[in-house]
Design a protein around this nucleic acid. Sequence first.
DNA 1: GTGAAAGCGCTAACAA
DNA 2: TTGTTAGCGCTTTCAC
Lengths: 345, 345
Amino acid sequence: MKSNKEVTIYDVAKALNISPSTVSRGLKDHPHIRKETKKNIIAVAKEMGYQQNKFASNLRQKHTNTIGVVVPKLNSYFMATVIAGVEKITSQNGYGLIISQSQESWKKEISCISTLFNSRVDGLLVSLAFDTKNLDHFNILLNKDIPVVFFDRVADCNGCMSIVIDNYKAGYEATSHLIEQGCNRIVHIGGNLMRNVYSDRFRGYKQALADNGIEFDQHLVIISDMNGQAGTDAAKKILKMVPRPDGIFTSNDSTAVSAIVELERAGVKIPDEIAVVGFNNEPISKVIKPNLTTIDYPAREIGEISATSLINKLKNSQSANFSTIILKHKLISRQSSIRNGKNKN
Amino acid sequence: MKSNKEVTIYDVAKALNISPSTVSRGLKDHPHIRKETKKNIIAVAKEMGYQQNKFASNLRQKHTNTIGVVVPKLNSYFMATVIAGVEKITSQNGYGLIISQSQESWKKEISCISTLFNSRVDGLLVSLAFDTKNLDHFNILLNKDIPVVFFDRVADCNGCMSIVIDNYKAGYEATSHLIEQGCNRIVHIGGNLMRNVYSDRFRGYKQALADNGIEFDQHLVIISDMNGQAGTDAAKKILKMVPRPDGIFTSNDSTAVSAIVELERAGVKIPDEIAVVGFNNEPISKVIKPNLTTIDYPAREIGEISATSLINKLKNSQSANFSTIILKHKLISRQSSIRNGKNKN
DNA sequence: GTGAAAGCGCTAACAA
DNA sequence: TTGTTAGCGCTTTCAC
C-alpha cells in the first residue's frame, strides 16, 4: 500500500473547492477564518492523509524549529540526564533536537558549531569542551542573532545566557566539610582551569583553606583530564606524598571512585586515613563502599531550564534577557568523609 | 556586524557572471563542469560567505539527511554509549540526528514515531519501549519506504533490520556459570517477556537449568520493570524464600547492584551465600564490592553498526538487505559470583 | 560545458 | 473571511 505521492495543501484545497491559502490558514488557527471552514479543512486534510511539508514551510519562514546541542561527551550519567531534561522541554514545545559531541576537543567543537549553523538551528545549547580557548566560533551564530545558552561549562560571552550552579560555593563547602572532619592536608583533583567549573571549584577550595588558617600548597593540587584513569593516577601520586594527605576533594565522582579503589588497594582506610569528597552525585556514589560524599548537581533541572530559557528567547526575543541562572546544589554527606572520632563539630 | 541578508547561489552567479545552475553544479562535483569554473565558484562562494540553504535543497530533493532515534530512556550508561556510537557515524556521514525518548511507554513511542515521521527523517533507529504491544505505528514509515533499524530491543518486522547480541546464549552462559559455581537454586530477575532481550535471556536461563538437571521453578522467576527499586524489591522477596536461593541471574546491572546492596544489608554474604550475575557491564559493576560478574554488551558497537547499516541502506536501497546482525557478547567473571571453595571446575 | 526555466510546497502581502 | 499571487533558494530537465 505504498503511496509515494505527497498530499499537499493544493490537493486539499481542490477537494474542498477553496484556495490553498485558506487551507494553510485553516490548518494553523489563523484568526481570520470561519470556524466551520476550519473544521472542514482539518477533517478533509486528515482524511486525505495530508502531512505538512516542513521544508517548504521553513523555506518560507526562515526558521527550523530545531535546536542544536553541543556537549563534550554524551556517555556520562550527568550529561545524559541533562539531555533527558532538555528533550522533555523541547519536545513539549514542538522543537526537534540535533545533538552533537565535541569529544572534549576545541577543534571538534568548532566543527560541530559550524555543522549546526549550516543546519540552520534556531538556537543552541552548549557545554564547552575541555580545551576550548576562545569563543570565536560562536560569532557566526551571534552575528545572525541565533541565541546561545551555555550550561555547566559556560563562558562569558556577550548576549549569551548561562545556566550553572555556584561552583565556587560548592568547592568551598566541600573543602570546609573535609576540614570539619579534621583534614588539613587536602588534595584537590581538578580539570582544566580555563573551564569555569574547575576554576571556580578550585577557588572555593583555596578560600576554604584560607578561611580556616590552612596554608595553600600547590603540590596538593592535581590537574588532569578528569577521566577514570586520572583518579587512579592521582591516587598513585598521593600514595607517594610525604607527609601523606588526609583528604581529597575532587571535581567529579568518577575520579573519586577510581581514586578510592586504588587507595584501598594500597591498604589506605577511607575515610579514616583519607577522607574523600566527589562532585555530581552520580548513582555510582551510592554504590561504592564507603558511599561517596559528593555535591548534588541538579542535572535534569539544568537541562530543563536551559531549554526553557532558550525557547523563551526564541519565542520572544525581547523577553528574559538575563545573563545567568544559578541553580541550587547541595553537599551530600556520606561515609567516605565522615569520621566519627575526630574533631566532629 | 550583523548581516541578515543570506547569500544565495544567485548572488554568487551574479558576481561571477554565470548562471545559478552552474554555481549549483560547481558546488557539488557535478561531472559536466570545467575544473576551473568549479574552482572559481568555490572560491567566490567562500569569499562571499555563501551557505547552502538546506530547506530549499531538501524541498527539491525530498530528503532531509536526518536520522531519527527513538530510545526508551536516555539516561542510562548503556543507552548513552549506544547514542555516542550512533552520533559518531552519522556526523561523519553528514547526517543530523533527532533523538527522542519513549520513556518506556508504548503510547509515547507512537507519538515519537509520528513526530519523527512528520519531521521527514530519512530513516529511523529504534529500541522498543518496555510495553510496546505491536508494531502498527511503524507502518506509516514502512509504507513510504523509510527504513527502520532496530537495536537491542528489537522485533520481527518485515523489511526492518535488527542489531542485537545473542541474548539466549548470554542468558545460558550466565546461568551455567552460576551452576558451575555450585548454585542450584537460581533466581532470575527479568523484564517484560514481550521484549526479546528479556525473553531470550529467560529462555537461556531455563535451558541451562535443564541441561544441568536442575528443575525449573516458576517461583524463582521475578518479573519486574528492571529499575533500581526492582532490585531492592527482588532482594526482599528472596530473603523470604525458603529454602533460600543461592544464586541470582538478573537482566541488568542496576538491579543486580541494588539487590546486592539490599542483601548485604540483611547480612547475606555475596557470593558465598548468594552468587550474583548481572547484565551489560556498566561501569558500576566494577565499583560495587564485590565486583559484579556480568555480560559485556558492546554498546558503542551496537550504535555504530546500527547507524552504519541504516546509512548504507539509505545510500543504496538495494544493498545490505540483511535482517539481523548479531554482535559478540562476553561473560565477565568477577567476585560477585566466584566461589573459591565450592565445586570450582 | 553552460544557461533558461520550471517547480518543489508553503506562506504572507495584498486585493477583493 | 477568502482568494490571488509572488516568491523563499535550490535542483534539474532540456536546450544550446
